[in-house]
């Protein structure tokens, strides 16, 4: 009986599935979070069921083709055109199997979507085409730094279109929608790095919208956070300014390579005389830049719309100075 052999195979596959459930196997990447092994166990169970049914269907098909191949002078054998018992059986068994998968899949899903009470909270902002992670102390970074073995809750929103936040190693994904907050959580199991992707198509740079999860050793995260919150003091002003340029939203409208965008490019802007809306002109120096950051509508460069929001109260004097130093270096 081929069926019996296939049952054996199913059993072996399940053993194999259990063995590799949290490893880097043919299909799944290495598991990096506490939720991942649970997902992998369902994945491998479904895989085993699928392989079994696939072999059953293809095996029977091959058998029939070989055995009942058309031969001259041989008519088809008489056989019934329906068989209620058989048809009920092959309806009932798949229903039972899919019900198991359904219940299992939903229970694990519930665990994955219910964060523990004492989670550490990080705000995630998606924008074309990068991720920004904001920490409770005001630090903003382009990579997600988290402590190992502690539940982390991400509160995510988008500034423009829908993005998809995906960490394959954590088996975690959620759409990031403008105008609402999505919440996910995870608990990383060991120190190391993991890849973050955007999975919801969002335009030209969709596939470049990458970031890393950096899981810190115990104690390492707090140290990183303190340093990161202090970067203005640790870095030269121009370098700190560049970081601010990236994480505070300047990059969305002001290019560095001369490309046109919502606002004027920073390339070669320093010391240039800009024509203003209404005919006047202005020299781009420290005072003009400072004014434009705090009162963007005061002097708008000709050819651009007055759409920049004010950064009054959002950037400190020290940060504005760092940005000015950075702008001087963009030639």
């Amino acid at each position: 009986m081929p069926g019996l052999n296939l049952l054996h195979l199913l059993y072996l596959l399940q053993l194999g599935a259990a063995a590799i459930a949290d490893g880097d196997d043919f299909f799944m990447p290495a598991a990096g979070s506490t939720s991942a092994p649970g997902v992998d166990r369902i994945f491998h169970f479904i895989l085993a069921v699928s392989v079994f049914f696939f072999l059953l269907i293809v095996g029977l098909m091959a058998l029939f083709v070989a055995k009942y191949r058309r031969r001259p002078g041989v008519a088809p054998l008489p056989s019934p055109t329906h068989n209620t018992a058989l048809e009920v059986t092959w309806t009932a068994i798949p229903i039972a199997i899919v019900l198991v998968i359904f219940v299992w899949g939903f229970r694990v899903f519930l665990d994955m979507s219910t964060p523990p009470a004492n989670s550490y909270e990080i705000i995630v902002t998606g924008q074309k085409w990068k991720w920004l992670f904001s920490y409770p102390n005001g630090t903003v970074d382009e990579n997600l730094h988290v402590p190992v073995d502690r539940p982390v809750r991400l509160v995510m929103t988008s500034e423009d279109v829908i993005h998809g936040f995906f960490i394959p190693d954590f088996r975690l994904k959620h759409d990031v929608v403008p105008g609402r907050y999505s919440k996910v959580w995870f608990r990383a199991v060991k120190a190391g790095e993991h890849q973050i992707y955007c999975t919801q198509y969002c335009g030209t740079g969709h596939s470049e919208m990458l970031a890393k999860v950096v899981v810190h050793e115990p104690g390492g995260f707090e140290k990183w956070l303190a340093d990161a919150g202090n970067f203005l003091k640790k870095m030269p002003p121009a370098q700190a300014g560049e970081k601010l340029y990236r994480i505070r939203g300047c990059a969305q409208c002001h290019s560095l390579d001369g490309a046109g965008s919502t606002g004027p490019t920073f390339k070669g802007v320093w010391g240039r005389k800009e024509a203003l809306k209404g005919g006047a002109s202005v020299l781009v120096d420290e005072n003009y830049v400072r004014e434009s950051i705090l009162e963007p509508q005061a002097k708008v460069v000709a050819g651009f719309e007055p759409v920049m929001p004010t950064y009054k109260g959002r950037l400190t004097d020290q940060e504005i100075t760092a940005l000015i130093e950075f702008m001087k270096t963009v030639k």
Partner: peptide, 14 residues
Amino acid sequence: PEVKSLIPLPAEAP
């Protein structure tokens, strides 16, 4: 309506 990129404060989830 001119400020497309500046989404107002997120509404509560529907």
